[in-house]
Amino acid sequence: MEDLVWTTLIRALAFGTPILLAGLGEIFAERSGVVNLGVEGMMALGALAAFAVAQSTGLPLLGLAAAVLAGAVAAALFAVAAVSLRANQYVAGLALTMLGLGLAGLLGKPFEGAPLAHTLSETSLMALALLLALALWFVLRHTYWGLVLRSAGENPETVDAMGINVFSVRYAAVVFGGAMAGLAGAFLSLAYRPSWADGITSGLGWIAVALAIFASWHPLRAVVAALFFGALYHLSYRLQAQVTPELLKAMPYLFVVLVLSLSALGRGPSGAPEALGTPYERGERR
């Protein structure tokens, strides 16, 4: 029993790391008022960039940097459409997911099945994710820039009135979110399962989007949520003989629906940014 708890915790941490990283990024983007459903696509691009660079240079840390860059560039592309051009954020995000997955699959052909000589350790990235969660919570909660970011998501008009450019704030948040999704991808292709293959993200990006909501956009609650989702995932294999695996795997989504329903009833933590999903336009009244 003790062994079951211990191994489940370890595995929950490992599996929780990519969804925590990407989820933290999504929390930042959404806190600034932009829903980016392109997490899955950015994660795939990050995973490929990390693997391609690490494999050809032999330097996994350079791969990590490449992943961050790839995710950020993809997110910037999304931001042009969703922030500057005020396109529908949901549609633009879905497009980014499809584009990212397709592009990564296409460009990744030469790397399929290639071995990786130098990998990163799961543990160090797990620790990094936990530290990042703590740091991001601090930034969001206790710094001026955190306040500005949150305001951009709650009441962009006020931010604008303060003389701060809402677009720049949102760009920064979205690009940062992309960088985090790229990092999550790098964890997959350099540490979790060092290799590249089309479809390596297998839906983790969507769990990260769900995580942002489940954690009610709070970086520290995101850690708990990631552990919880990770534990459910591990247990769906561990307890396969006792519990239907489909049920355990559907849990993350079930819980998201539950949290959303509870907050709609006004009984649970919600914290959804007021202006979430609404493109900002100067001088327009809501």
Binding site: D3, L4, T7, R11, A14, F15, L188, Y192, R193, S195, A197, G199, I200, S202, L204, Y233, H234, S236, Y237, R238, Q240
Partner: peptide, 17 residues
């Protein structure tokens, strides 16, 4: 699933455990 590296990894970890 025919192809799901993450699932295969967790299933293997569960078996090791």
């Amino acid at each position: 699933e025919w192809y799901n590296p993450a699932a295969a990894k967790e299933a293997t970890e569960a078996l090791i455990a």
